[in-house]
């Protein structure tokens, strides 16, 4: 009986082990599974991302109350964060690095990389180095770091997102400015208290819209003028989502500041909401280099696509005419 029980126990343990391997095994046969496991499945648990390159540029993205922030200061661009998180979740090894190229790629990764670290509740979940694209620009070299030993694995891999044709390095950009939410005006319907638009060079076109007795009224030089209420309402809807194209980085910023100091301000646009918060943009036309011509050979003095603007409490940004065109109307357009 004892023998039988022993045989039964051994068989039972073997069955448990066998079942475990059976149910955890996969049909795939990939060597160095640990070194190629770049993806993080549970991206919703990530609450901090640190990105840094070799030049010292770095950014920390943190999630607080479901809102991602850049360096704990600015609100981060939601879409950009989602793109990064989806990338982190879906990144897969496209192919191995050829043996002959391994040293070269490791060298490149050592000298030019972006380090990405992902944390959950203060604990490092995953970290890896992101290198450049391969020759076809459809793969990105990456090297995983072992979280336990904090040393990188010896084998880099070419990674990609299945279904995406391009490389992934720009998604891990460590420049904080690229992560900032560049929305200037984001006023939902009926959230605006007043709008003031001043054209310095053509003051006759300037106007102001104020909410008075539940009705938006049009003003010019502080004098009420008759305005078309449906046109005004339609105009105010344009403030729903207006964003800057980019912020100017310091070196370029100094040069631009010197240039625009010599210019007059083109317009000043201020919008105040019901909480009394005012957001202003000061626009300056962007001069073209002398001799510039458009597609039909006419001389161009100013850039027809972009202009400069002070926004986000006096930060210099690049703005697009296409985006601002609906806002930069004249008084007569509202009459």
């Amino acid at each position: 009986m004892k023998k039988q029980l022993l045989l039964f126990s051994i068989s039972f343990v073997a069955l448990i082990l066998g079942s475990y391997f059976y149910f955890t095994s996969s049909d795939n046969n990939l060597n160095e599974e640990d070194a190629r496991n770049f993806a993080i499945e549970e991206i919703e648990k990530i609450d901090k991302i640190f990105l840094a390159d070799k030049k010292g540029t770095q950014v920390t993205l943190t999630k607080e109350n479901k809102i991602w922030k850049v360096n704990d200061t600015y609100v981060a661009r939601h879409k950009r964060i989602q793109t990064l998180l989806k990338t982190v979740q879906k990144v897969k090894v496209k192919q191995r690095v050829p043996k002959e190229q391994k040293q070269r790629i490791l060298k490149n990764l050592a000298t030019n990389n972006i380090k990405a670290e992902f944390f959950s509740k203060g604990e490092l979940v995953k970290s890896y180095f992101i290198g450049s694209a391969d020759g076809t620009t459809t793969g990105t070299y990456m090297l995983l770091i072992n979280e336990d030993s904090n040393e990188n694995y010896p084998i880099p891999f070419l990674t990609h997102l299945i279904g995406f044709e391009g490389y992934l390095t720009p998604r891990y950009e460590p420049n904080p400015n690229t992560w900032r939410d560049l929305s200037i005006f984001y006023f939902p319907k009926n959230a605006i208290q007043s709008v003031k638009l001043d054209y310095k060079e053509s003051s006759e076109n300037s106007f102001e819209i104020k909410l008075e007795k539940s009705k938006y009224e049009l003003f010019h030089n502080n004098q009420k003028v008759s305005g078309n209420s449906s046109k005004i309402k339609k105009y105010l809807l344009n403030f729903k989502s207006i964003a800057a194209e980019n912020l100017l980085i310091s070196q370029v910023k100094d040069t631009v500041l010197k240039k625009i100091k010599k210019q007059d301000v083109w317009f000043t646009l201020s919008v105040t909401n019901f909480l009394g918060k005012t957001i202003s943009v000061e626009g300056y036309k962007k001069k073209m280099p002398p001799g510039s011509k458009n597609s039909i050979g006419m001389p161009l003095t100013f850039d027809p696509d972009r202009f400069y603007g002070f926004c986000f409490e006096n930060e210099l940004a690049i703005l697009q005419h296409y985006v601002f065109e609906p806002l930069l109307i004249t008084k007569s357009d509202l009459e």
């Binding site: 009986m1 045989l7 069955l15 066998g18």
Partner: peptide
């Protein structure tokens, strides 16, 4: 109990053989 143990042991051995033949 002896019969049951015999039966279960036999059953488990067959199962194990099946699982290992998979690998």
């Amino acid at each position: 109990l002896k019969d049951l143990t015999n039966f279960l042991t036999g059953f488990i051995i067959i199962l194990i053989l099946m699982i290992f033949s998979y690998f």
